[in-house]
Every structure is written in C-alpha cells, then in structure tokens.
C-alpha cells in the first residue's frame, strides 16, 4: 500500500502540492486526474522520490520513502515520466536490460536476461528488439520503456501521462497492458492521465486533484459522475452508459 500523509511542495510562493493525504490500495489501477497545474505529476514524482517533498511523509509498504535504501526501493517501485530524452543510442533490448540494474548492478545473470526476454515478449517487441530507439515510432518507444519497467519487476508501477502523444490504437494497447499487469501479475499501477474516459474505462480507483489538493477520491463509478466532475473541472459533463462503461461526454 502507498500511504501519503500531509505532503506539501512549494515552488517559490506557490503551493504546488498542498497538504495531501491519501492511500492507494495494492493490486489496483489508480488514476490521478484533474485540471492542468493541479499537482498530479509533482505528487507522482514525490512518491517515486524523483523530487523531494517539503513536508509530510510517504510510506510504501510501511516504509518511509526518503529513509529507504534507494536500490532496495528500485526493486519495489518504478516510475516512467512522460518525456524520456536519452542521449545515448540504445537498442530496445539494451534499454530493457537496464531494468535489471537494481538486481544485477549491471552484471546481468541468466535469470536477469530471462526477465528481459519476458518483458519484451509481454510488450510484443520481439520482432524489433534489436532496433535502435531513435528508429522507432512514438508508440513503439513508449512500449519499449514500459517493457523496461516490467523487467524491473516492481510491485508498484508509476506512469506519468503514459498516453501522451499516442494515437487511439496505441493508447488502448498501453491501457490494456496496464490492466493485464494488475489482473495477471498483481501489480499496483498509479497513473497520471488527462483523458477521463480512459481513466473511467480502465482504472479501479480515481483521485482528483485541483490546486494542489485532493478534491475527490473514490472508486471509479463514484467519481465518473456528472456532479462530481463538475466540481473538479467546473464544466457540465454528461455521463452516458455504453456497454457497461461510463463515458463522459463533454465535447459540446
């Protein structure tokens, strides 16, 4: 379980994340939604120790993040940010093999390579595993990075806007993979996502942030609701039920 207690972060005079407390259940997909500048990505980065928090505590399976050994933590939680500019030329397989660093410190054993191959297989990248990253399309790159995270084999997987710049087909593909990761492998997935319909169709739990505060949280059915969403986004949003899914209609 991830437990966030009274966490705050300031940039200059602005409280980007303001005294946030929440609990994220294991084995579920939790989505962070909310308007631009709500502090979603900042919160995600703090949970994954990419940036430090000004105050408060974050516990992962009962251990405080900033007190953990970084390498041990890397076996428990992994994060993928939305922009990944890597300066070196790597093939997919090389990239994915980096996911084993926390276990192997760079000297991969047979077992490590097995994890790498499985991750590549899981993301259906076998055919292009020897291609260089810069030869790939955006969707393929994103799948390669996710394969790396899978190879890292952590209980918690954090993704910051994983659908950014992807077309519909690839977006659905990625979301299905995340669903499988939770359902088949029991992973806990936390994502920051802008498209509330993807959040609605694929996540179990939704946390809505606004101005650095948690304004709503609850199971997906409760949050994807006209009046609740109005409170978050300050606009009228109709909810239609289509094939058991709740679809927000806000285009007109």
């Amino acid at each position: 379980m991830v437990e966030v207690k009274n966490v705050s972060k300031q940039y200059g005079n602005k409280n980007v994340v303001d005294n946030v407390s929440l609990q994220i259940a294991k084995g579920k997909i939790t989505s962070f939604i909310g308007p631009n500048g709500a502090g979603k990505s900042t919160l995600l980065s703090m949970i994954s120790r990419l940036i430090s928090k000004d105050s408060g505590e974050i516990f992962i399976d009962g251990e405080e993040v900033s007190k953990c050994n970084s390498n041990e933590l890397a076996k428990k939680i992994s994060i993928l940010k939305q922009s990944n500019h890597i300066n070196i030329r790597l093939t997919i397989r090389e990239l994915v093999s980096f996911g084993r660093f926390p276990y192997s410190q760079g000297r991969l054993t047979k077992e490590d390579w097995r994890y790498v191959d499985e991750a590549i297989h899981y993301m259906e990248l076998e055919d292009i595993e020897d291609k260089f990253l810069d030869q790939l399309s955006g969707g393929q790159q994103q799948r390669a990075y996710i394969a790396m995270v899978i190879a890292q084999n952590t209980d918690y997987i954090l993704l910051d806007e994983p659908l950014n710049n992807l077309d519909m087909k690839h977006s659905v593909q990625i979301m299905k993979v995340l669903r499988r990761l939770t359902d088949e492998l029991g992973k806990t997935v936390i994502i920051v996502i802008h498209d509330i319909n993807f959040a609605s169709c694929y996540s179990d739990y939704i946390v809505a942030l606004k101005d650095g505060k948690v304004v709503q949280e609850g199971p997906t059915e409760e949050i994807i609701d006209s009046s609740v969403l109005k409170g978050i986004y300050e606009m009228d949003i109709n909810i239609e039920h289509i094939n058991e899914n709740r679809i927000a209609v806000y285009y007109a």
């Binding site: 994954s48 120790r49 990419l50 970084s70 390498n71 041990e72 933590l73 890397a74 076996k75 992994s78 994060i79 993928l80 940010k81 990944n84 500019h85 890597i86 300066n87 070196i88 980096f98 996911g99 660093f101 926390p102 760079g106 890292q152």
Partner: peptide, 15 residues
C-alpha cells in the same frame, strides 16, 4: 551506464 540514461531514470533504477 545507468547515469547516462539521465537523472530520473538513474533514480528510478535505484542509484
């Protein structure tokens, strides 16, 4: 090698 992936990836991988 891990550092050459950039700061965020390095932290993610436990450095």
């Amino acid at each position: 090698n891990v550092l050459s992936l950039g700061r965020e990836q390095a932290i993610n991988l436990g450095v």
